[in-house]
């Protein structure tokens, strides 16, 4: 009991101290750009409980979920196909290499020309920006599945679907999960950028609009909300990962 509370105190004292420092130092701040923390927090309450939730948070979260799901499914499926067909992999590798090297935000003007400015363009761009880590780690993980096991399964005429489900996916899943985690970060990045580029709603629009109308307190409350979104999305991912890959983490700790 004492040891646990000591550990909690150990990891909490510095964050708490910094928050307190922010509170005290900013209390009488007259700088336009750095308003007192108390003002930011009361603005945060005004903006997000629950006035602008429907207008700005819901579209961002929905686009993030849709884009991330699209990126995950296409990354894993394409990755499995490419990983199981090495010749195809060699043929498409320069194209993949090139596409993932393009910083995705620079494609937004192009996507606007081709797909318009609606939600579907945003979701496609979020998925396009986030798909590469999942795709590449799925290819890598599939290529490194024990070939003897795969050959044996083929010799026993175990059908392809069962081979995928029972041999490839379990061996590849820890690394696919690592790729998905990076993909999630990139998807959040793209959610914000896509809402800043010629958009009329969402958290990215909210902070950019606050800057353009010189509403500094809203700007800070929007940044806080975006930070919160990033933290919640990451924690949710860790939660599901630890559930689904429990067998793997337990085998690592042995």
């Amino acid at each position: 009991m004492i040891r646990i509370s000591a550990r909690i105190a150990n990891s909490l004292w510095l964050p708490a101290l910094l928050m307190l420092l922010w509170l005290v130092v900013s209390a009488h701040s007259s700088s336009i750009y750095f308003p007192p923390l108390t003002n930011i927090l009361s603005q945060f309450r005004k903006d997000w409980i629950f006035a602008n939730i429907g207008k700005d948070v819901v579209p961002s979260v929905r686009n993030l979920l849709l884009g991330f799901i699209l990126a995950s499914i296409s990354g894993v499926v394409l990755g499995l196909v490419i990983g199981l067909l090495p010749t195809l992999g060699k043929a498409v590798s320069p194209v993949i290499h090139f596409l993932r090297a393009i910083p995705p935000p620079i494609l937004l003007p192009l996507a606007a020309v081709l797909l318009g400015l609606g939600t579907s363009m945003k979701v496609v761009m979020i998925a396009f920006g986030g798909v590469w880590p999942t795709l590449i780690s799925t290819i890598d993980a599939t290529l490194s599945v024990d070939p003897v096991v795969l050959d044996t399964a083929r010799a026993y005429h175990i059908p392809l679907w069962t081979r995928l489900r029972r041999i490839v996916l379990p061996q590849a899943s820890p690394r696919i999960a690592a790729g998905l985690r990076t993909s999630l970060q990139l998807c959040i990045f793209m959610v914000v950028v896509s809402e800043m580029f010629a958009s009329k709603g969402g958290l990215g629009f909210f902070v950019l609009d606050a800057e353009q109308t010189f509403a500094i307190k809203q700007l800070w409350s929007g940044i806080l909300m975006l930070g919160l979104l990033g933290i919640v999305a990451n924690s949710a991912f860790s939660f599901f990962e630890s559930r689904i890959l429990r067998w793997y983490f337990m085998s690592q700790n042995k």
Binding site: I188, G204, V207, G222, I223, L226
Partner: peptide
Amino acid sequence: LKPIPPVALIPL
């Protein structure tokens, strides 16, 4: 601080 998307700070 790590998960805060850096692009969120563009306006600031």
